[in-house]
Design a protein around this nucleic acid. Structure first.
Lengths: 187, 187
DNA sequence: CCGCGATTCTAGCACCGCTAGCGTTTCTGT
DNA sequence: ACAGAAACGCTAGCGGTGCTAGAATCGCGG
């Protein structure tokens, strides 16, 4: 173990420390409370070290968002494999994720529009999320394009999640809305 | 015409001037470019004048958003009255609005979460938007709850609009996605 | 053990939303 | 017509933001 490899490892650990701290801070107090100063204080380094790991605050949020996609993909996959009705299970898993980790969901879809979507260099975790939707939509696609239907389901789920999170839709009827969506979508 | 009424009128005009300037600036360069300094410079007053009209920047954005709801309601209503297929017409009008005025749509639904939704004191323009959805969804409601179905349509449209605006969905297939949504929803 | 390169910190830039306090202008009552 | 009062808009400044230049420190290789 040469000193260089040790330093590289420590660097990677510190980078993960920054990501985790940003995420915890955002989940606890929202993204507007995540400032570079508070973040630096939390990881017990000075501000400029953040910039030796990330190009800026946006890049930190993108890194947090990427973690979010990994977890979302895992939860969707688990739901698909353990549900009698995979479509309903995966949809509910998506909604639950958005509801239980609003700041994380926010980073993934509202903040930091720098992550590339629907291109070859789209990170694997993001592709995995979409593949779960594709899987689950296949049985109801009939003659329609699967990809299009998956995008549609995604849009509807995203709309439900964001409008509810923003207080635009009363939370009480959340389950009934989701049930109605699935009923209509699977004609 | 007493001096007071003249001053009141001038005040109202200046308030509208601020709202319009904020809107134009946001539509031209995005909300992150709308700072109180730039806004003050644009209306040719000093910063503190803004605060004699609005409680803060959020309140200015809320005022812009309210204008947006008025226009959206008008466009949806026009589409409903002049379309052979009101459901498709209103949906397309909604999507077009979001696409052609992204900053305005942003203010209405993503920024400024201070506007009250789904409560008695919800501004008339916002209620009018929802009523248009209600109207148009009625023929396809069957035994389902109309309100719920309207909320669902709204969610799907909102999801499509925001994911497309954020570069998450390729714009080319926009029309086909919308057509698929309406086909599935109206069974 | 020393010198050099990598690394980290201090200090500061330009900007943000917002506000205290003063000077000016405008209205009001005599 | 004029003095006092009140409304008004300005300058200047506060504490905060993301980000960076340059100094200082640390740790490695010879």
């Amino acid at each position: 173990m040469t000193p260089q490899t040790r330093r590289q490892r420590e660097r990677a650990e510190r980078e993960q420390l920054i990501i985790t701290a940003a995420r915890e801070l955002a989940e606890a107090e929202g993204w507007e409370a995540v400032t570079t100063r508070r973040l630096a204080e939390r990881v017990e380094y000075s501000q400029p070290v953040l910039y030796s790991h990330f190009a800026g605050k946006d890049a930190i949020m993108a890194a947090v968002a990427l973690e979010g996609f990994t977890e979302l993909a895992a939860q969707m996959r688990a739901a698909r494999e353990h549900s009698a009705d995979p479509l309903a299970g995966v949809s509910a898993a998506y909604i639950d994720f958005a509801e239980q980790r609003p700041a994380l969901y926010d980073a993934m879809f509202s903040r930091s529009l720098t992550l590339p979507f629907a291109t070859p260099e789209t990170p694997a975790a993001m592709q995995a999320c979409f593949e779960e939707l594709l899987h689950v939509v296949r049985p109801i696609a009939a003659t329609d394009d699967e990809g299009l239907l998956a995008e549609l389901l995604w849009s509807a789920l995203h709309g439900l999640a964001t409008l509810t999170a923003g207080g635009r839709l009363p939370r009480e009827l959340h389950d009934r809305r989701l049930a109605l969506l699935l009923a209509r979508l699977s004609t």
